[in-house]
Amino acid sequence: MGERDTDKTREQGVEFGSLANRIDNHSYPATSTDLIEDYGDYEVKLPDGTQTLENLFEPLQEEEFDSAEDARQAVLNMVDDRAIGRKGYSDRSPPAPGEETDWEPESI
């Protein structure tokens, strides 16, 4: 079982929906313009809204993708801050003694 054998419709807070299968079954290499022409109206869902593939790929200016993995990674790279979820949130523990950080404990 490979690392990509899991559900490809959701990754890193981005819900690809039916676009995942379209990207996977597309013929590669392909440019961002090719994918916009075929799937530009498809939306990806983010924790705080949606974006179309056209909106995501328009700034890429004919970037070429060698595989579906490359195209999916480009989507993940191009989503805006609506994919972040809670800004500034960290699930890290407080810093260890001597560890440099900007973190300050909350006042109680």
Rank of each mutant, 00 (worst) to 15 (best):
K8D: 10
K8M: 15
R10W: 08
R10V: 14
R10E: 13
E11P: 02
E11D: 14
Q12C: 14
G13N: 11
G13F: 10
G13C: 13
E15T: 14
E15K: 11
F16S: 04
F16P: 03
G17S: 12
L19S: 08
A20I: 05
A20N: 04
A20W: 02
N21K: 13
R22H: 12
R22D: 12
R22L: 15
I23P: 06
I23D: 09
D24Y: 07
H26F: 13
H26Y: 12
Y28R: 11
Y28F: 11
P29F: 02
A30L: 08
A30D: 08
A30K: 08
A30Y: 02
T31R: 05
T31P: 08
S32N: 05
D34P: 10
L35F: 07
I36F: 14
I36S: 07
E37G: 02
G40M: 06
G40P: 05
G40N: 03
D41C: 08
D41R: 09
D41G: 09
D41Y: 10
Y42A: 11
Y42D: 14
Y42C: 11
E43Y: 06
K45H: 08
K45T: 15
K45W: 01
L46E: 00
L46R: 00
P47L: 09
P47M: 07
D48Q: 11
D48A: 14
G49L: 13
T50S: 11
Q51Y: 03
T52R: 05
L53G: 01
N55I: 07
N55F: 11
L56F: 07
L56E: 01
F57R: 04
E58W: 07
P59C: 12
L60F: 04
L60G: 06
Q61M: 10
E63G: 07
E63C: 10
E64K: 10
E64M: 13
E64W: 00
F65A: 12
F65Q: 10
F65K: 08
D66H: 02
A68V: 00
A68G: 14
E69R: 08
E69C: 02
E69I: 00
Q73T: 05
Q73G: 06
A74N: 04
V75N: 01
V75D: 01
L76A: 09
L76D: 09
V79A: 04
D81Y: 03
A83I: 07
I84D: 01
